[in-house]
C-alpha cells in the first residue's frame, strides 16, 4: 500500500501523519511512502517514520521513495541502521 505525502511536514503535522500512517500499517505488508513531492521534513517527522518502521516487526518494512536530500540526511544522521526502514531514490 502506498501513501503519498506532499508539501512541508514538520512537528505541527505529526498528529495527522500518525493517523494517516495507521492505515497502511494496519493493512499489513510493506508500507510504501511516495515522498517525491515532500519538499521538507523535520526531525520530528523523520523520527515518526523511523519509529513506525521499527514497530512493523521483522517481516515488514517501510520504504521511502523519492526522499529529498534533506530527509535522506536526517535518516543517515539519526537512524542510519534502523531495521525495517529503507530509503530509495526512485
Amino acid at each position: 500500500m502506498c501513501l503519498r505525502l506532499a508539501g512541508e511536514a514538520d512537528l505541527s503535522v505529526c498528529g495527522s501523519l500518525a493517523e494517516a500512517l495507521a492505515v497502511p500499517v494496519a493493512a499489513g505488508g510493506d508500507v510504501h511512502l511516495d515522498l517525491a513531492a515532500l519538499t521538507f521534513a523535520d526531525v520530528s517527522v523523520t523520527r515518526m517514520l523511523a519509529q513506525t518502521a521499527a514497530g512493523l516487526g521483522p517481516d515488514r518494512k517501510m520504504v521511502l521513495h523519492g526522499a529529498s536530500p534533506g530527509l535522506q540526511r536526517l535518516v543517515q544522521l539519526c537512524w542510519p541502521d534502523q531495521p525495517g526502514l529503507e530509503v530509495t531514490d526512485g
Binding site: V43, R47, R73, L77, C78, D81
Partner: peptide
C-alpha cells in the same frame, strides 16, 4: 548521537552535524 528510540536530542545532534 541520541539512541534511535530517544524522544529528544536528535535536533541538536543534527544542528551540530550539519
Amino acid at each position: 548521537r541520541p539512541a534511535p528510540d530517544a524522544a529528544h536530542g536528535h535536533g541538536l545532534w543534527v544542528v551540530h552535524q550539519l
